[in-house]
C-alpha cells in the first residue's frame, strides 16, 4: 500500500504491531476497571445464564440416571418345562445367548429354582407341604435374560415363540413386564423431548440475553468509539479492547460459574445418595466431564460475546 505522506514524515505504521497489541490489552484492562459496574453486570448476566444451562445439564444427568436405574432392573425369565431334556435346554440357552442384543444371561438349574422357591415361600407351610407331598421337583430350569435396551426384549421373545419350543418352554415373564417396559420407553422419550426443548429454549434465552448485554455495553460507549475513530484509530485498535474484554468476561464468568456449580451440586449430592445409594453422584459426573463441560461452555460464551461485540460495534465504526 502506497500512502502519500504530505504532512509529517514520521514512521507511520498502520499495521497491528506488537506495541499496538500490548496497548490494546492495557486499554482493555483499564476499561474493564474504569467501567467496573458495567463489567460487573455483564459478568453477572453471563454467570446467571451459565447457571441456568448447568441446571439443565444436571436435570438431564439425573433424569437419564433414573431411567437407566429402572431399565437396569428389568429382565425376562424363560421357564423351562421340568420334563425338558438338558440337550433341548442347552440348545435354547445357546440360541438366546447368540443374540447380539443380549447383555447377560443367568441360568438356574431346577434344584436352584426349587431352593429359591422354598426360600421365597418359607412362611407358607401349605405350599411347602404340597411340594413335599409331590415327592419330586415340579419346577424346571430358568433362564434370566438381560438385554442392552428394553426394546430388544420383544425380539428375543418373538424368536423363541416358535412351535418347536412350545413343549420345552413353560412360560416367560415378558408378558407381565411388557407394559412396564413400554412405560419406561415412553417416559424416556418424553424426558428426552422435554430436555431437548428446554435446552433449545435456554440456549435461545441465553443467546438473546448475552447478545443484548454486550450490545448495551457497547451502546453506552458508542461516543468513545466514534472519538477514537476521529483521532485516527484503526478499526482494530478500537475493536481490540472490547474483544479482549469479552475474553475477560468469559474467563471470569466461567470460573465463577464452575465454583458455584461445584458448590451447589455438592449440596444436592447427599439427597441423591439417599435415593440411589451412590455418594457424590453429581460431583463425580462434573469431575469426570470437567474438560468437556468447561471447554464447550467457554467456547460457546467466547464465540457469543465476541460475535455480539463485533456486531454491535460495526455501526459505530463506520464514522
Amino acid at each position: 500500500m502506497v500512502v502519500r505522506l504530505f504532512l509529517i514524515s514520521s514512521q507511520e505504521n498502520i499495521d497491528f504491531s506488537m506495541l499496538s497489541f500490548f496497548r490494546v490489552i492495557k486499554f482493555a484492562i483499564q476499561d474493564f476497571f474504569r467501567n467496573f459496574s458495567l463489567s460487573f453486570m455483564t459478568i453477572l448476566t453471563l454467570v446467571l445464564m451459565l447457571l441456568s444451562v448447568n441446571a439443565l445439564i444436571a436435570f438431564r444427568v439425573v433424569g437419564q440416571h433414573a431411567i437407566e436405574m429402572v431399565e437396569d432392573q428389568i429382565n425376562i425369565s424363560i421357564y423351562f418345562s421340568h420334563t425338558a431334556s438338558d440337550e433341548h435346554i442347552s440348545e435354547i440357552v445357546g440360541f438366546v445367548q447368540s443374540f447380539p442384543e443380549v447383555e447377560q444371561t443367568t441360568f438356574k438349574t431346577p434344584d436352584q429354582v426349587l431352593e429359591e422357591f422354598r426360600t421365597q415361600h418359607a412362611a407358607n407351610h401349605e405350599i411347602l407341604a404340597s411340594l413335599d407331598e409331590l415327592g419330586e421337583n415340579p419346577l424346571g430350569a430358568t433362564l434370566i435374560v438381560k438385554t442392552n435396551n428394553p426394546e430388544d426384549y420383544e425380539n428375543i421373545i418373538t424368536a423363541i415363540d416358535i412351535p418347536e419350543y412350545q413343549d420345552i418352554i413353560d412360560a416367560q415373564t415378558f408378558g407381565d413386564t411388557q407394559a412396564a417396559i413400554e412405560n419406561i420407553r415412553n417416559i424416556t422419550e418424553r424426558v428426552e423431548r422435554v430436555s431437548l426443548s428446554l435446552a433449545i429454549m435456554f440456549g435461545l434465552i441465553a443467546f438473546i440475553i448475552i447478545f443484548n448485554t454486550i450490545r448495551v455495553a457497547i451502546y453506552t460507549q458508542r461516543e468513545e468509539i466514534s472519538i477514537k475513530k476521529l483521532v485516527g484509530a484503526t478499526d482494530w485498535f478500537v475493536k481490540g479492547p472490547y474483544i479482549v474484554q469479552s475474553i475477560f468476561f468469559t474467563v471470569i464468568s466461567i470460573a465463577v460459574t464452575s465454583y458455584l456449580v461445584m458448590f451447589i451440586w455438592s449440596r444436592f449430592d447427599p439427597y441423591w445418595g439417599l435415593i440411589w445409594h451412590q455418594a457424590d453422584f453429581l460431583t463425580n459426573y462434573y469431575n469426570s466431564n470437567i474438560l468437556f463441560l468447561l471447554s464447550s461452555q467457554t467456547a460457546a460464551v467466547l464465540v457469543l460475546t465476541i460475535f455480539s461485540a463485533t456486531l454491535a460495534m460495526r455501526r459505530y465504526l463506520r464514522t
Binding site: 500500500m1 500512502v3 505522506l5 504530505f6 504532512l7 509529517i8 507511520e12 498502520i14 475513530k229 476521529l230 483521532v231 485516527g232 484509530a233 484503526t234 485498535f237
Partner: peptide, 10 residues
C-alpha cells in the same frame, strides 16, 4: 483503510 492515516495528520 487510509482514513485513520489522514485523521492522524489533521
Amino acid at each position: 483503510r487510509d482514513v485513520p492515516l489522514l485523521r492522524r495528520q489533521i
